[in-house]
Design a protein around this nucleic acid. Structure first.
Lengths: 123, 123
DNA sequence: CTGCATGCAAATAGTTTGCAGTAGC
DNA sequence: GCTACTGCAAACTATTTGCATGCAG
């Protein structure tokens, strides 16, 4: 990060404090409460920067979602209602961390697993 | 599939026979060789249908990619050059298939893991 | 023949970019 | 003070949609 601006602080604070995996627009709407003059372009630029610096993760999809939870975890998406839930499973993380060094023709430094199905409400 | 049209046959044939994980546009350009009057809208509509019917998989990203390889496999994406490679690892698939029933608060019927890193060329 | 599927063009939506002004360091 | 960062509006691009016509069943 070259310069630490108010916009960056506010966005990172928001992402660290939420579990909703917000879209760029949701970040914009929330951050706007504290910085009424912020623009969507700035939000996009800052989110891109954070992803490149590995401060947050981006979850691709129709609308990209952003995850500021810095504890290792995986995702579960309900196919019916689209809800995204965090999964914490130490054994899974450990297993995949071992695997990642064997699996590809190159160097793996990261992985991402998403489970798809139906949440309790939609079952 | 309600009706089996020439467009659907041609698109599925192409997807079953390629390993390039084409975007909707690449599907369009290739299929056009055989069906010069096909439109992009049709390609998008048919791809969506195939994904819903689980005939193919969609790989989200800036441009969605489509994977018609019906053998179970996972993905490796090079962060540098963006290349997408298939990973075949029976043990990994087996492990995840067991895990998927324990991991989420709901019913999991599918999962998708992507490894990120640098391919041999970019290392 | 019936109505789902297609082609075309226009519309939409998410994201990116150019530029002039602003503010970290 | 230098120059990266921001806000604004316009541009861009992937994808979707409305509608008239075509073709599978």
């Amino acid at each position: 990060m070259k310069r630490l601006t108010n916009q960056k602080i506010t966005i990172l604070d928001f992402l660290r404090g939420t579990k909703i995996h917000p879209t760029a627009e949701e970040v914009y709407l929330n951050v706007q409460k504290n910085l009424p003059r912020i623009s969507q372009a700035t939000v996009y630029r800052i989110l891109d920067e954070f992803v490149k610096e590995n401060l947050i993760k981006s979850i691709p999809g129709k609308k990209t979602r952003f995850d500021g939870n810095d504890i290792v975890h995986q995702h579960f998406i309900c196919k019916k209602c689209g809800k995204l839930t965090d999964i914490y499973d130490g054994a899974l993380d450990k297993y995949l961390n071992k695997k990642k060094n064997l699996v590809a023709d190159g160097t793996v430094d990261d992985f991402e697993i998403t489970f798809y199905g139906r949440c309790k409400k939609c079952s």
